[in-house]
Amino acid sequence: MKARVHIFFKESVLDPQGSTVASSLQRLGFSKVKEVRMGKVIDLILDHQLPEEARKDVAKMCEKLLVNPVIESYRVELLEK
């Protein structure tokens, strides 16, 4: 089983990288781009059999190490392979 963790800065944390990418896109003519937020993706290859167990464990991993709740929020996606 594969779990994909998407991590982003919370809305309240300024993301200068995202703002810079947004202004470059606008300069290239993509005038409808309002905002860009940069984040990171972590793929975990797991040995779990049950999706619920995997979800629980991944949430614990996020709390303990993968995510800093002071500045980041996250979302977990379970993939078959």
């Binding site: 800065f9 944390v13 300024l14 200068p16 990288q17 002071v70 500045i71």
Partner: peptide, 8 residues
């Protein structure tokens, strides 16, 4: 928390 400088 401490994150990347605003100027990068």
């Amino acid at each position: 928390a401490l994150v990347k400088n605003q100027s990068y």
